[in-house]
């Protein structure tokens, strides 16, 4: 599960911080990134870089999601530079006229808009900063700590009458089931390979179709496990319909 989550073993202040504080901090930082503009955005990015250095997870791990989204970010920047902003768009039909306005750079038939490029760069920096913050959270927090953090953050909802127990149960069961389903999926893939199914084919379409064929057995197997688990929980007295029995079931 730790390998799945991308947790990085290290001893740093971020590793030692409580998961709930890190989750709340992530929400605050994301709000700051979205709200900041100009120099304030650069200051927030410097803060992200400082957090990455403080976490000791390595720059490669911290920037991994940004690298994964590199083409998406390039497209955003290019689209904004080409089509964003006002003045260059007006002169887009005549590159020389657009370039003459001072806000655009003419490269042959292509007109790059300076204000559009700046707008695109802002979007790219925001997306990259949020991606780095998310990577730092997953690299410094174990999955079980994350679940506990979600529980702590949701706890105040219990005081206003909302039931936190079903949410906590769902989060816990989901995280516990991920490695089990991964193992079962691998077994089903091996079984199909033995029957000459072409899951590792080099052809993309062929590989995708072979994955689609696995869907029904994966779902039936997962629902069978869900059925067994719910029967076992109810047999031990776990109920959510009526609160007293739920409490009793939880401690039994």
């Amino acid at each position: 599960m730790r390998a799945l989550s991308g947790y990085v073993w290290a001893d740093s202040p971020l590793h030692r911080a409580p998961a709930a504080a890190k989750l709340a901090g992530l929400l605050v930082c994301v709000a700051l990134v979205v709200a900041a503009r100009g120099w304030a955005l650069l200051a927030v990015c410097a803060g992200c870089a400082a957090l990455a250095a403080l976490s000791r997870v390595g720059w490669r791990r911290a920037l991994q999601p940004v690298w994964a989204m590199r083409w998406f970010l390039v497209v955003i920047l290019a689209m904004n530079a080409l089509f964003g902003g006002g003045p260059a768009l007006a002169g887009a039909g005549t590159p020389a006229a657009a370039a003459a306005q001072g806000d655009a750079l003419s490269l042959g038939p292509v007109v790059l808009n300076a204000s559009g490029a700046a707008q695109g760069a802002t979007v790219v920096v925001r997306v990259a900063a949020v991606a780095v913050l998310g990577a730092l959270l997953t690299a410094t927090t174990r999955p079980q700590q994350l679940i506990d953090g979600v529980r702590v953050l949701l706890a105040p909802l219990g005081r206003v009458g909302l039931s936190v127990e079903p949410v906590a149960l769902a989060v816990g069961v989901t995280v516990q089931f991920v490695p089990t389903l991964l193992r079962e999926s691998r077994q089903i893939i091996w079984a199909q390979r033995i029957r000459c199914g072409d899951v590792s084919s080099r052809g993309i379409l062929r590989r995708a179709v072979s994955y689609v064929r696995l869907l029904v057995p994966i779902f039936v197997s997962a629902f069978r496990r869900a059925d067994e688990l719910s029967v076992a929980m109810e047999a031990r007295g776990y109920r959510l319909d009526d609160e007293p029995r739920a409490r009793k079931g939880r401690h039994s």
Binding site: P166, L169, A170, V171, G172, V173, T174, V175, F177, V178, T180, L181, I218, F219, A222, F223, R225, A226, D227, L229, S230, M233, E234, Y238, R239, L240, D241
Partner: peptide, 16 residues
């Protein structure tokens, strides 16, 4: 379907 089973199914589907 009981409430517990609904939640377990939701969790298993989220895991899938």
């Amino acid at each position: 379907m009981s409430q517990v089973k609904r939640i377990v199914i939701a969790a298993v589907c989220a895991a899938i």
